[in-house]
Design a protein around this nucleic acid. Structure first.
Lengths: 241, 241
DNA sequence: TGATGTCCTTGATTCTCATCAAGTCAGGCA
DNA sequence: TGCCTGACTTGATGAGAATCAAGGACATCA
């Protein structure tokens, strides 16, 4: 019940959603108090375990969700089982594909995740009434497109070492978007295998590159998940930026 | 000037743009005749040579454009010169980033290209007046996001051979979106080097994989650019689909 | 006709990362 | 306490793609 405000970093939004008890940009940020109240009636909150599936690749989903806390991974799979994670979504992102029948990607909780879901119908009707809402969706979609294209550069042209450094940088940035200091620490939101699937590598290569970064003093790792970065600029160098 | 209708495949749009003398989905498809007339006054048509730059990575662009014919490549570059093509845009796509100052990617003509350009201001004002226009933009942006994510799977998880086959399939699909027969032929819109930059490979590897596809009878290549695919299903197999 | 340049192909070698196989570590549980 | 399990690390080996280096093919131009 006590939603941490720090989870919700993009807090220039004035409205507090009745359903999620949270501010977020995905959808609710654009709604009027009346609409929020109406939305609240149709929305449900859920808590998901790591690994729980939110949506399948070609399954029709009847709901949209706002991520309240946690990290969701979006992935695609080939017929023979090779997998690629094509995006990560953090609170307070919006989850779901407006005006599309199929998802195109499957969505799975990477960490424990809290979401606030509501039926497509309701949101799509509201979009019709409120151009502002559609504008929000366009903005988020443009952001996701930027991230996807940045990641294409990473996948296509970076070495294993640069990829792993880029990943750490990405997580650090999303965990503390406003970080000013030159050091940072955070928890990795996913397993070595997931990281490998995100970077187009194998688990072993990810492990080796992490070991190398550690040996070179660029990072410290405690307990397999907790990462300390004493000097972000050095990590950034390693990422090829 | 006799714009070929076949260039504009998404022809469910009723309106013929006065400026471009063409139907297309990018923007004009959503406008009223009055607005089209108004837009015509501000728009200019340009013909670009292959290699001509339409927009730089961090340069502010003051115009939007519809692609009338030809192929535009969107790319990102690292400090040391490594390059990745992050998207291809075909007629009748819309080119430009609504509501963003910077492009994030640089846009360059891959083939000879005809575009119809107009000032950002004009379009952004029209968007304010017409939610329908914003909806069109959202739809295109969602399409581009899908394509980007599909390509991430290709970049991260496919072998060199699968990548090259995937590329050929992509071009075939865009050149003839409604193709029903099981054979197809087309012109490659870009050089081996560009293909390599799109696939995250070297020129030499692209060349070798094309040679192998040819040796196996999956494709025929005439004059370095003209490609014949006798059996699309075989090519599709090679692409790992 | 031959010289030049560009784009592409082919060959030889190197190197990065995947694969296969142990081995380590921490937590859960009898 | 010791065993078990799952997640991660480390090591040895090999395959696939990059790199380095020639060698065509084709057009332009003198």
């Amino acid at each position: 019940m006590d939603i941490q405000r720090k989870d919700v970093h993009n807090s220039d939004l004035p409205v507090l959603c009745q359903a999620c008890e949270s501010r977020h940009r995905g959808v609710c940020g654009a709604l009027t108090p009346d609409q929020l109240l109406q939305l609240s009636k149709h929305s449900t909150r859920r808590t998901l375990e790591p690994g729980a599936e939110l949506a399948g690749e070609s399954i029709q989903t009847k709901t949209y969700s706002n991520i309240i806390s946690g990290v969701v991974k979006l992935s695609k799979m080939m017929a023979d089982g090779r997998q690629q994670i094509v995006g990560l979504q953090f609170a307070p992102d919006f989850l779901g594909r407006p005006f599309r029948k199929e998802n195109g990607v499957s969505a799975e909780a990477a960490t424990g995740v809290k979401v606030c879901s509501f039926p497509k119908q309701v949101i799509e009707r509201m979009i019709g009434e409120m151009p502002e809402l559609e504008h929000k969706l366009l903005e988020q979609t443009l952001d996701e497109l930027d991230e996807a294209r940045n990641w294409m550069l990473t996948l296509g042209r970076k070495t294993a070492g640069e990829k792993v450094a880029s990943f750490l940088l990405l997580i650090a940035t999303h965990a503390f978007p406003d970080n000013e200091s030159d050091s940072v620490e955070f928890e990795l939101p996913m397993s070595r295998m997931d990281i490998a699937d995100f970077l187009g590598l194998t688990m072993e290569t990810v492990s080796r590159q992490l070991t190398k970064l550690r040996a070179d003093g660029v990072i410290r790792i405690i307990n397999n998940r907790h990462v300390e970065v004493p000097d972000i600029a050095r990590l950034s160098d390693r990422a090829g930026m």
